[in-house]
């Protein structure tokens, strides 16, 4: 019995060692491959094997696809850091590392620019706030004013952490219903992802969220906010001052706003910049 256990253990260790070896070889081969292709195309006059991009959690899907397309065409690996925009701003300030910053709202890039961290910027797409409700719209919400009705349960993005939280408060303040709406808020969350999940699970009657994040979700229904009541944000992208590969990073930013990049954003539910419907 004891011997069998010992044998099993040895077999397990061998398996583990084999896995480690395989993965190590695999990654080595990968690195070698990308470096050769990088030198082969080297379109930006720099010897960059990879760049590091801070992107808001809401841009994960299109940005990953854009990263792969960019790697295919230029042989440069795009490494992402996807978290909340505010957290990324702290990381950038504390570490002075990374090449490109794409926050969920222009406000964060403005702050970074004021602190002298950003050199060059482009506008990528619009972030459009909408009212989201669970499938079937149980509380029968039809317009912004309905959020102020008594006995409605709302969830919200944290006003100081999530861009959508702050933007949403601005919208209801402009409509003059802030007090009544805030009374209906039963919980707040750090990112729009958790807000979306709570609506999707039917735990609350409504929330304000970004249109693109919920566009393809069957469990969530969307009520648009009229232009004059809404506060539409721009998703910008900025080159960080301490980037070690500024030419490659600029190339990547231009790729994001190229026809091909825009097509990927549109595929994932974003309205790209500029658009006559949302201008001004």
């Amino acid at each position: 019995m004891k011997r069998r256990a010992g044998l099993l253990f040895v077999a397990f260790v061998c398996l583990l060692a084999a896995c480690v070896c395989l993965s190590a070889c695999g990654s080595e081969a990968e690195v070698a491959q990308t470096t050769t292709s990088a030198t082969a195309t080297a379109g930006f006059g720099e010897d960059a094997a990879s760049i590091m991009v801070y992107a808001g959690a809401g841009m994960k899907k299109p940005m990953e696809e854009i990263g792969l397309a960019f790697e295919e065409q230029h042989g440069v690996v795009v490494e992402y850091n996807f978290t909340g925009s505010g957290a990324q701003l702290s990381q950038i300030e504390l570490t002075h590392q990374g090449d490109v910053f794409m926050p969920g709202s222009a406000m964060y890039l403005d702050t970074a620019e004021e602190k002298g961290l950003v050199e060059y910027r482009q506008n990528v797409a619009y972030h459009i706030p909408v009212i989201t409700v669970p499938q079937g719209n149980p509380a029968n919400i039809t317009c912004l004013d309905d959020l102020a009705k008594p006995d409605i349960k709302l969830v919200w993005g944290d006003p100081e952490v999530a861009a959508i939280g702050k933007t949403g408060i601005g919208i209801v303040k402009k409509a003059g219903i802030y007090e009544a709406v805030w009374k209906n808020v039963v919980a707040t969350f750090p990112t729009m992802n958790e807000v979306m999940l709570q609506i999707s699970l039917g735990q609350a009657d409504a929330a304000i969220n970004w249109w693109d994040t919920v566009k393809f979700d069957d469990t969530i229904e969307v009520i648009e906010i009229p232009r004059e009541q809404n506060d539409i944000k721009l998703i910008p992208v900025g080159l960080l001052k301490f980037s070690e590969h500024p030419q490659t990073s600029r190339g990547f930013m231009d790729f994001c706003v190229s026809e091909q990049g825009k097509a990927i954003f549109e595929k994932h539910g974003f309205v790209t910049y500029p658009d006559p419907d949302y201008e001004g």
Partner: peptide
């Protein structure tokens, strides 16, 4: 805890 109770200030 955050999923169940929220992170309400």
């Amino acid at each position: 805890a955050m999923m169940v109770a929220g992170a309400t200030r």
